[in-house]
Design a protein around this nucleic acid. Structure first.
Length: 336
DNA sequence: AAATACAGCAACCGCTGTTAG
DNA sequence: TCTAACAGCGGTTGCTGTATT
């Protein structure tokens, strides 16, 4: 167990600071400077613990603290830094003069976080939330193919497009991908699909070819197969190096972090569980819930995310392009 | 007008890394 | 080298003001 809080000592005050206390603390620090927090309260005539004094000073009384509303530029900076640093509030605060980590943390939790969620951005991953994807409306389109899909990126989450492109473009490793997909109930199907698919990636090397794997450090090639997690890691690294939130990158291909789900799904043929809230909020189950639970491997000519549809049914849906089938029972509201 | 819900934020809690004796 | 205290950090709590019913 941890140490008892310093303020548990009898006689020490807790709670909001009074003007008188603020004055005492400020005047003492003006004279003696900050530090020696343990002896400071006694010397300053305060019935507070040193820790409380330190917090009051660093979060409120310090003269260089900028109070008031956050400027737009500050907010942008916070979002950008958070996408790189995560909840390292002190590190973020260090780059925002006059703002404390506590203030930034509060602002994030009460304002920015909500706004990102409202706009469909996951505040943890800084990526569009696939669980909000309204695929059903897209599927109502009679001519649903990748070409159309690529022209409606404002409607469709780009991550799905990227995954689709990635899969379709990997004709050289089709067998491997098929195996991978069978293991994960995702099915690459169209051998010729890559011919039909515009290259929407700004970095062709993201395509999971063996050649690319071999040329890329840290990429694992196992039985000729590039793992998605390698691509994901590489892509994440790339975006992090750029210090730009992925969703702000208009020309890049960001892959969701499938790695953990794929691993767990491979090891046990059960539904994905929400996992690793820190690094991975990408919930496959939310996106393709029934695909995960499917026990019917399919072999067709297009990538297909499917539940209980038979192979023939798949063929009827798919040409050379991508198709998705969402079960009618799926309620997106359940994943909100 | 009163009760309730919600939002914002200051302050606290508890854990961890660092440092001095 | 060990240990206790310090300092810093992130998460959480609880108070207060405002909005809604």
């Amino acid at each position: 167990m941890g140490r008892a809080p310093c303020c548990d000592k009898t006689g020490l005050k807790k709670g909001p600071w009074t003007q008188e206390e603020d004055l005492k603390l400020t005047q003492y620090i003006k004279t003696h400077g900050p530090g020696n927090w343990r002896t400071l309260p006694k010397n300053a005539g305060l019935q507070r613990c040193g820790k409380s004094c330190r917090l009051r000073w660093t979060n409120y009384l310090r003269p260089d603290i900028k109070r008031g509303r956050f400027a737009f530029e500050e907010e942008e900076t916070i979002i950008q830094l958070h996408s790189v640093l995560g909840n390292k509030w002190s590190a973020i605060a260090a780059r925002l003069p006059g703002r404390t980590d506590n203030e930034i943390k509060n602002y994030w939790n009460t304002q920015i976080r909500k706004r990102l969620l409202k706009n469909g951005i996951d505040p943890v991953t800084h990526r569009p939330r696939l669980d909000l994807l309204d695929l059903s409306s897209i599927l109502k389109s009679a001519s649903f193919n990748l070409s159309n899909l690529l022209n409606i990126q404002t409607l469709v989450n780009p991550q799905v497009l990227r995954l689709a492109t990635l899969l379709a473009s990997s004709s050289s490793s089709n067998l491997e991908n098929k195996e991978l997909f069978l293991n994960n109930n995702l099915y690459p199907m169209n051998q010729n699909s890559s011919e039909q698919i515009p290259n929407v990636t700004s970095t062709p090397s993201l395509l999971p070819t063996n050649e690319f794997c071999n040329q890329t450090p840290n990429m694992q090639v196992n039985n000729g197969q590039c793992f998605y997690e390698d691509l994901i890691n590489l892509n994440e690294q790339t975006s992090q190096d750029n210090l730009i939130p992925p969703y702000l990158m208009d020309n890049s291909i960001i892959l969701p972090n499938y790695s953990e789900q794929i691993t767990s799904q491979t090891s046990e043929n059960s539904s994905f569980q929400p996992s690793n809230s820190e690094n991975n909020n990408f919930d496959m189950d939310s996106i393709f819930p029934t695909a995960i639970s499917s026990s019917t491997p399919l072999d067709s000519s297009s990538m297909f995310i499917i539940d209980s549809t038979t192979e023939d049914e798949i063929e009827s849906y798919c040409g050379k392009n991508f198709s998705f089938e969402i079960p009618q029972s799926l309620k997106f509201d359940d994943f909100m």
